[in-house]
Every structure is written in C-alpha cells, then in structure tokens.
Design a binder for these strands. Sequence first.
DNA 1: CCAGCTGAGTTCGGAATCAGAACTCTAGCT
DNA 2: AGCTAGAGTTCTGATTCCGAACTCAGCTGG
Lengths: 148, 148
Amino acid sequence: MRHAQIADLPCTVARPAALLGERWMLLLLRQVFLGTRRFEDFQSAMEISRSVLADRLGMLVDEGVLRRVPYAHEGRTRHEYRLTEKGMDLYPVLVALRTWGERWMAPADGEQFQLHHRDCGGDVRAKVECVECGAGLTARDVRVTPTA
Amino acid sequence: MRHAQIADLPCTVARPAALLGERWMLLLLRQVFLGTRRFEDFQSAMEISRSVLADRLGMLVDEGVLRRVPYAHEGRTRHEYRLTEKGMDLYPVLVALRTWGERWMAPADGEQFQLHHRDCGGDVRAKVECVECGAGLTARDVRVTPTA
DNA sequence: CCAGCTGAGTTCGGAATCAGAACTCTAGCT
DNA sequence: AGCTAGAGTTCTGATTCCGAACTCAGCTGG
C-alpha cells in the first residue's frame, strides 16, 4: 500500500495519522503553536526546504487545520497562516507528545520553553480520561471493542 | 536541515516528533495498541512493505518503545514485539489522535472499534489539564515561556 | 536424509520524495 | 527604472520507498 492511501481508511486514528505522520508535519505544528505564522519565519525556524514547507502548509490549509489570512505588513498585503478551530483542537496531540518527551526523551540541558496554565500558573499535561467517571486512564484500563 | 536531525534538537516536542513523524510510525503504533505483535501480522494488517516495516520496528526497539520477546509457537522459537513501559506511555498520543479524528475526520460509516473504560464502561478521551488546579485546558489557556 | 513449509526478515531496481540552491513574481520605496 | 522583501516555484542530484524476489533457520512429513 502507498502511504498516501492511509488517509482513506475508515479509521479515526489512521486518518489523522496519515496527515500528522507526514514528514515535518508535527514539527510544523509545534512551530504553529509556538506562534509562528509566516512562511519565512517557518523556514528559518525549522530550516526546512522551501518546497516541502510550501507543500505541507498547503496540505494543512486543504485539511482546514490552517487558514491563509491576508494582513498588512509595512504597507503591503502579506499572508499568514493561522490555526482554525479544527487546528486549535490539535493541541492535545502536541501536548501529549511533549508530556511523553519530558518523561522519556528529556534533553540533558533542560527545556527550551515552559507551559503554564494562565489562570493559576500550574504545569500543563496531557492525559487520557474516562468521560463518565473522570478517572485518569492508561492503556491497560481501556477495553477495545470492534464495532459490529 | 535533514529530517533525521530533528531528533537532535534539545526540545521535548521535536524529539518525539522526529520518531513518531516517520512515515508509518503512527499507524504502526495504532496497530500495536490494538494488540498486534508479530511481524507477519503487522505486515498483513497494514499492507506496509516488509523492508520499511523491519526498519520501523527496529527504530522502535532501538528507542525502547518496543521489546523483541522470544516465545514458543508450534514448537518453535519466534519473536514478538511488545510495548515497554515507555511504549505504553505513548497511549495518550494515540488517544489524542483519535479524539481529534472522531471530531474532525469521522468516516461516514462510523468507527471500526470503540474504546471503553474497563471499570465503568465510559467513553475514553484525551485532554489537556492543569496539574495544579485540574482544569481542562485549550491552547488559549496556556502561556508559553522561553526558558532563560 | 531430503523436500517442503512458515515466520521473519534482507536485497535489489525502478519510482517517488527530499534538500538546497537558484529562479520568479508581486508590490512598494527611492 | 532599479532595488528590496516576502512568498513561493523550479530544478537536479541524493534519499527513501515500494514491491517482488530471495535468504535463512528450524520443524515435519516421507
């Protein structure tokens, strides 16, 4: 199977995985959530090749994760990429990556940036929970049932 | 920059992103969490090329996400791939993908499998929370501070 | 003992994708 | 008109991927 065909599987894990599993995609989204919005800024922050960057930004716009918005810059019309609601909603994926990275791949010389709850200053973390009882869950607490 | 160099960035988002952002990696992990353990089973379930599968499984073993465990099968020693604790701990990433997929990329004909809390049967979902006050958070509720 | 089978890879050649540098296009400034 | 900056696009050699074929080890049946 071609990698691109993953997107057609009728599975709510596989479909996002097809998009976010593209090379550079997760790093690009990290950059988006850090506030980067302009082509040139992505390019210099990530040192990604321009052609691939253009391609990936295009994918995210096509998928409705980003919106290409015109804005004024030194008297000229430029465009920037901003998260849509669908894009904002990817935040848990990125935080989950970071939560895992903090525990298992921490760089020797500490973090480059911290995340804090605006209201109370507390640390931020991704978790899996039961909608019903609110319990925090691990893979072992979850039962997988094929749909009939 | 080469894609492979992402792994060397001193960032707890980038490093996991380098590993999980490899083609097929997220789909492979989905399969792992669905209980697949043997090379042949991965190969037929995902229709991935054997060479790439061998390469990706090797990466996950090198990273300590999977362990290659010998076991008896029809009187012969075989090997299977099982999640380590580090691997188990990736569960929130996969559930976050699914939570997003359910909302934004649901296939027309419903889910292929359901996830339920073993104890109470409730639905399972990924969320971002504040460790301090327990509040559920969106990207807007979080402040990013560069470390000095 | 030898052929056949099975699980688990490895090898290989053509096809697709990537990296990075150069090029293009558009508008505003001088 | 010429210069500049942002945002891509094009091009070419280098990687990586795909899929089919091949290998290898150890039963199993004859």
